[in-house]
Simulated scan of single mutants.
Amino acid sequence: MPTQQMLFIGGLHRSGTTLVERIIGEDPDVAALRDTGVLMNEGQFLQDVYPTDEELGGGTEKRGSVVGWAFNPRSHMTEHDVPDPQRTADELRAAWTPYASAPGARHLVEKSPANIMRMRYLQEVFPDCRLIAVRRHPIVYALAVRKWAPRHIKIGFGFGELVRHWLAAMDTFEEDLEHLRNVRVISFEELTHEPESVRAELEEHLELTELSLPEELVPSPPRRYVDYWKELASASPWRPVRPLNSSARPKPIAPETLEAVVASAFGKQTVRRTIDRYGDAMKRHGYDPEVLDRSFRPQYLN
């Protein structure tokens, strides 16, 4: 039986990696990892060849590590971290193949967020693989994952740490690009505004012929995050901000109660500090800190 070609998707949490994996998995020639029993069917949790996001992030909460792994130097893996490519490939295939949704398919797609920082490693192990990097506005990303962050960030302090985490991952990816052969970069914003263009680009890159894009898989603009950020920008103690997230279980002092106080008192300062400190870096990666629902192509991708 021919060996399945590997397709790898990487990108920070809540950037659209799961969505892209589902779109690619719609093609009958592609198998995805299913019924694995691990978080989000991510292949990283089925193998023991390299460390997982949880190990690298060091979070104490179940999903707390999602805002820390990019800071860990061990997250960045290259061809120099592969002592025996064939043995590594055999071990990874042995871990993933039993969960392939269509064993006879020509391709097997594996999605894990930290793939964005180990694409050189994966390319060395699987020389004919195809790589897909998914990106999303760093402010929207930060707002989306804040609920998994340490408590002080969850209630509104230290927002810049989440943006720095995004930049740490994307800066590394930018540096790695010149070493990558078969890679495509797509954005969540492109999926929202130009879904057919993204579908065609993926189909060409992956050499697929029946890649469809069901309407239910086309994401909506992130109005919830855009509106919240606007509220923060005009916040004051006399103009309270509605909490972004609510606790699943009632608590004596719920995080959203503290968040409302912090956001009202310091929200405007948080927005201005984020733009002043990280605005230029965001623009270099194709994002305007003042426009949260659009992306443009950064110079390093031209």
Rank of each mutant, 00 (worst) to 15 (best):
A142I: 03
I132Q: 03
Y141H: 14
V163Y: 01
P113C: 12
W166N: 03
R130A: 12
D171V: 00
I155R: 07
L162Q: 12
R151F: 13
A169Q: 07
R118Q: 04
R118W: 06
P98I: 09
Q123S: 12
L167D: 01
V109E: 07
R136H: 12
R130N: 11
L131P: 09
R136Q: 06
I116M: 14
V125C: 00
G156N: 05
Y141L: 05
E110N: 12
I132N: 06
G158N: 13
Q123W: 10
V145H: 05
L122G: 05
T97C: 02
K111A: 12
L167T: 01
R106F: 05
A168Q: 03
P103Q: 13
M170Q: 14
L162Y: 05
Y121I: 05
S112N: 14
A144Y: 02
A142Q: 07
K147R: 14
P103S: 13
R146T: 13
A168Y: 00
F126M: 03
G160V: 04
L131E: 10
E124T: 14
R146D: 10
P113K: 04
R130E: 08
A169P: 02
V145E: 06
R106I: 06
Y141P: 02
E110D: 15
A105T: 06
D171N: 12
P113L: 08
A100S: 12
D171S: 13
P150F: 02
A100H: 11
L167Q: 01
Y141K: 04
Y99T: 04
P98N: 09
C129I: 05
R135K: 11
R135I: 09
W148M: 13
S101N: 02
G160D: 13
E110G: 04
V109F: 04
T172I: 02
P150K: 03
F159D: 08
W166F: 02
A100F: 06
L143A: 08
H152T: 15
T97A: 12
V125W: 00
F159A: 09
G156T: 03
Y121E: 06
A114L: 15
V125P: 00
Y141S: 12
G160Y: 01
E124N: 13
F157C: 08
A168P: 00
L162A: 07
H137Y: 04
A169H: 02
G156M: 02
M119N: 05
N115K: 00
M170T: 14
G104Y: 07
R120H: 14
W148D: 15
A169R: 03
A142G: 12
R120T: 14
V134R: 05
E161N: 10
G156D: 06
Q123M: 09
V163L: 10
A169Y: 01
M170K: 06
L122A: 09
I153W: 01
G160Q: 10
P98M: 10
